[in-house]
Design a binder for these strands. Structure first.
Lengths: 191, 191
DNA sequence: CGAAAATTTGACATGACTCAACTGGAGTGG
DNA sequence: CCACTCCAGTTGAGTCATGTCAAATTTTCG
């Protein structure tokens, strides 16, 4: 079955006709492990819906350290939102961590969908609201808990993502060094 | 002039008729310094547009420590989004830091506005996208920079907010203790 | 003026980073 | 199939960032 169609129908009531029209705006892209969907500095011309595989969206700072904004798997969206909206150079790199499949839509077609299919505008609003809530919660966790707690929360909340990641990648999401994460893991095992 | 009307017109093209219809859904509320628009645990029944004054949206954790999600002043929106959307008990308290004026809309009327005025749905989408980008940037800052840098960035980016706040409030936003913020400030002065 | 809150300060404890070394497993070319 | 390399993970020592607690000082505000 069509994963994207299912996703849309879960959020809004939409006719099959409009749904098909929307889905036809996407193109399926295959991408190999370690290849990038977007590289920091380029303009992000797409919004992507992940069908299979796993992606990491990260930025590299002046010191050369990587910081992960989020990981994406099946049924998640992925884009550098600021770059996509404003055509500013992307602050993030989007890399495939496995051989992956993703449905891409460009900005022109997304605007077209918004204009022609009101349910789609509504769907994106609902979607954005949900991820907004998730971002707010992450900020509160980041400013209020220790790395131990954030690590346990991450592997508990997203076990199906965590199991595919290296500890280096998880550390870059939690905002700690991978050496320190290693020590946290040892401490957890030893109790 | 009507601040909210101006705000809407800056984001979307909308007829005066629809604009007035939208604005008539709000009710002006005056709230005194230190009073709360919302208390943690209650259901957030409103979304608010600030006309005057200053608000702080914060949560209290198990240890009794306060953590600030954001501050709001004139021209900003304020709500516990998750509670407003899902009717779950609010995780945040919204307190006025000064005598303030805020325009409130309830959920039923907001839904009505979305159904009857497509430009309003569009406006909220644009608004949510912008704050989404801001939240993403804040997460990256939180996981990648030290408290010194975050403090300097905050007072540089939002001087008109920072000047109204106590250091305790700023510290609760940055995710550090107010004693440590005091030491940061001394260090900055002494160079 | 007087009380409450904010701010500062210092001593000490803990969280977290850096660097360097080591181990072990996964891929790769011969 | 082996030897090699590379990368992830672990570990320890030393250091820096930040928290905690308690006390003193200053500011705010009724």
């Amino acid at each position: 079955m069509n994963l994207l169609a299912q996703y849309v129908k879960n959020l809004v009531n939409i006719s099959d006709e409009n749904l098909n029209k929307f889905i036809s705006l996407f193109s399926l892209t295959l991408i190999k492990k370690k290849d990038c969907l977007l590289e920091q500095g380029n303009v992000c011309e797409f919004e992507g819906f992940i069908i299979n595989g796993c992606f990491r969206l990260y930025t590299i700072d002046e010191k050369g350290n990587e910081h992960t904004l989020y990981f994406g798997i099946r049924n998640w969206w992925v884009t550098d939102l600021n770059s996509f909206l404003t055509k500013a150079p992307a602050k993030f790199t989007i890399q495939a961590l496995e051989d992956s499949e993703v449905l891409l839509i460009n900005k022109k077609d997304k605007i077209k969908a918004f204009q022609e299919i009101p349910e789609i505008e509504k769907m994106f609003r609902i979607m954005t609201q949900k991820s907004h809530v998730a971002l707010e919660q992450r900020i509160i966790r980041n400013i209020s808990t220790t790395a131990d707690q954030r690590y346990l929360e991450f592997i508990t909340k997203y076990p199906q993502i965590a199991e595919r990641l290296t500890n280096i990648q998880i550390a870059s999401y939690l905002g700690i060094s991978h050496e320190f994460l290693s020590k946290i893991r040892r401490k957890i095992v030893n109790n």
